[in-house]
Amino acid sequence: MPRNKEFDYTEKLELARNLFWEKGYHATSMHDIVDAMKLNRSSIYDTYGNKHDLFLKCLSNYSDFKENQYYQALQAKNEGITALENIIRDVVEQTVTDNKACLTVKTIFEIVPEDQEARQLILKSGKSLLAILEKAILQAQEDGNIKSTTSAQIIARYILSSFSSFWSHYNLTQNKKEVMEMVDFLIDQIKK
Rank of each mutant, 00 (worst) to 15 (best):
K5S: 14
L13E: 07
E14I: 14
G24W: 04
G24A: 12
Y25G: 14
H26W: 14
H26F: 15
A27Y: 14
T28R: 09
D35Y: 07
D35V: 01
A36R: 10
M37E: 05
L39T: 10
L39K: 03
N40D: 15
S43I: 12
Y45E: 10
D46W: 08
G49D: 02
G49P: 07
H52A: 11
F55E: 03
L59I: 05
L59R: 00
D64V: 05
F65K: 04
K66I: 13
E79D: 14
I87R: 00
I88E: 00
V92Y: 00
E93K: 10
T95L: 05
K100C: 02
V105E: 07
I108N: 00
E114H: 11
L130F: 03
I132R: 03
A136T: 15
A140G: 12
T149S: 05
T149D: 15
T150D: 08
S151M: 07
I154Y: 05
R157Y: 08
Y158G: 12
I159A: 03
I159S: 01
L160R: 02
L160K: 09
S161V: 14
S165K: 06
N171K: 11
N171F: 07
Q174T: 13
N175K: 13
E178C: 08
M180L: 06
M182I: 07
V183A: 04
F185L: 14
D188S: 10
Q189K: 08
K191I: 09
